[in-house]
Amino acid sequence: MTMLQVSDLTFKIGSTQILNGVDFTIEAGETVGIIGPNGSGKTTLFNCLSGFHIPSGGAIVYQDKSITKMKPYRRAELGIGRVFQNFAVFKEMTVSENIVTALESRMSPWKTFFPWSKQNKINKQKALEYLKEVGLEEKAEDKAGSLSGGQMRLLEIIRTLAFGAELFLLDEPTAGVSPKMKEDVANLIKLLMKEGKTIIVIEHDINFIHKFCKRIIVLDVGRVVLDDTPENIRTSPVLQEVYFGNGKAANG
């Protein structure tokens, strides 16, 4: 089944063209990496997918539904989960409240209307189970702002899982994460794969992406320049050109 189909997607701010007709298709259950130099439009592409930018042209189809102009929260309702580059955990909330907030999204608000409702206790219990998956159960009552970068990333990813996302958009999951914890992030992504989730991950570290992606898309100046297996990408002369410049394609 096709999970996501992006066709001829363009986006511009003023007269600057950021995306120049991006085309790709993601099948359900796939794990795809997106790489490309700074300014190649990776995060802009994600913002178009999650609805923070409305594309100037082209179409996005998610599970046979056109979502090109849909509001961000509606897309999330459909199951598109986003993990941000700069930590979107709610730092003033406790770690478990972060998960509870995500769990509540798919519930009738009346079930959790009174702070003492039974559902709130159940949600709290569920939150602890999710936190155990990433080894954060001891931090459950701490403020999320007190976590380290790596822990925040784990929390954000597990929160998106608790929310019930089907398609995960991970924007540089290892940014701001200590080398030691990169392994934990990789394990969590593998857990998502085991649950059958579809994952698109932006990453600079090609070795990290290699651990789980069987397909990599290379973006440059708002276009897909390569879409292949990691092995073929590594040896491709196009990649050299994109990153180190070979005359015309040079672009920081």
Partner: peptide, 11 residues
């Protein structure tokens, strides 16, 4: 705290 974060959780 983080509007986009809340939107991504379908709020």
């Amino acid at each position: 705290e983080y509007e986009q974060g809340a939107l991504s959780l379908a709020k």
